[in-house]
Design a protein around this nucleic acid. Sequence first.
RNA 1: GGUCUGUUCGUCUAGGGGUUAGGACACCAGAUUUUCAUUCUGGUAACACGGGUUCGAUUCCCGUACAGACUACCA
Length: 511
Amino acid sequence: MKDVRVRFAPSPTGALHIGGVRTALYNYLLARQNNGTMILRIEDTDQARYVPGAEEYILESLKWVGITIDEGVGVGGPYAPYRQSERKPMYRQYAQKLVDEGNAYYAFDTEEDLDAMKQRLKTAGVASPQYNSITRMQMRNSLTLLDDEVKALLAAGTPHVIRLKVPRKEEVRLNDMIRGWVMVHSSQIDDKVLMKSDGMPTYHLANVVDDYLMKISHVIRGEEWLPSAPLHVLLYKYLGWEADMPQFAHLPLLLKPTGDGKLSKRDADQMGFPIFPLDWTDPTTGETAIGFREAGYLPEALVNFLAFLGWNPGTTQEIFSMDDLIKSFSVERIGKAGTKFDIHKAQWFNQQYLRAKPNEVLADYLLESLSREKIVCSRAKAEKIASVMKERATFPKDFWEQGKFLFFAPATFDEAIASKKWNEDAVKVLGAFKAEVSKLTTFNAEVAKSTLDGVTASLGIGTGKILQALRLSMTGSGAGLDLMMIMEIIGKDEVVSRIDFALNKLKVKVA
RNA sequence: GGUCUGUUCGUCUAGGGGUUAGGACACCAGAUUUUCAUUCUGGUAACACGGGUUCGAUUCCCGUACAGACUACCA
């Protein structure tokens, strides 16, 4: 088997879509598994769509998820440059070769000419007008013009493109690793532009030329490329590179979570989940989008989640580190059908990975939030909080957001809980409990429990009946972590003062 | 419209000519926790439809429906 060399080849036209991250991941896994080479090539042949900062964004995104590049933009390599705009001079000769050998031709048609042609065909009843083996004979190109005319036009620097001369009748077939044999009749392919009038190649030419020159062994890309894959096969053939043609694998698309269609930024905005790996601000529109990183997703979790969108190991194992994925991945086990994007599953993975972190790391998350809020907290205390909260957290920010009451006494109380659980028994118990607690010299969860039990026993009231009321006085709501642990963490004095406050604030409602 | 691709629980999927069609997420219920959550146990829930081939089809073939992608001098 020849050396595995794969490439991820995004266009710097904006933030990297999450589907692109998955494509990069699959390429990366195949490369690592086979001791191959992962290449990053930037396909920036469309100057009009170039967005400043997009390339840096792509680089940073890949770095964040843990995809390392062996060769390409940012790292260099034997086939540099890896930015297509910088490779511009290399493409012309291949287009020229195609022209010289009769497989491509110059076309001088203006935009108006093309519009007129399409219009004419439409009125003649042709559903989808194409520049193809039939219509090209009515257009202004080197097939219809006299040689001298063509020479003169070229010499005069007349704007022109180079088009592929697609054969009239030919079955073009390719063996896709995921879909098997795909056959398309050449009459369905139009004479695609290979070189644009600005001297830049189109995707089709640049892609094939670069893949050949960079000795790419496998092309793993999105399914949206499947319809043009036969065209690429044709190019390999005419360029004489058939023997070196890479293996193709067209990945199923990532779909909207509900309904149908390709996953888009709109869906993400509407449903409140990220679709880009990192925060992104569009430099021209100023539009912003939240990233998985900033939303609190761990890169390991995102990678695991993404890997399972379209691929599975065939076992019941679900938690896979990058190394596990490298060992288990196989293109053969990639599915064919489009995949709906379910953020719940991503959250579940995140939770799994978060829980597996050592308490010190979890404490760091909390400490980080606290320092942003300018709250002082000892490392020991933070670790204690982290250890008791880890089972309920999905994101690093949860330690702070769900644990705020450990640092701030409640100012208001949940109405629903108050009306249900705040009764005379509760008031009686809390009053007595408060008095007992203030007398204590040592205070922790265990002492709190025994003290409370003592109070309820002497009053003849079931402890369970008043627990929610006590919780309400501590947190302001009916939720939170273990109540005794809450009291231990906030300490004796705070317990007393919170009960005091609740007693005062909620007293009226009892009567 | 045309071309290409696809279709197993709500979602991600396993499976494959004879299975009680398996797992995970989500959801629901019970147990535990005299509190919240966790955890545990259980439950609801799927082979798009119609023809063939076959003793037998969810699995193979053909149609239909539905969905998606593509149909630019964008990638």
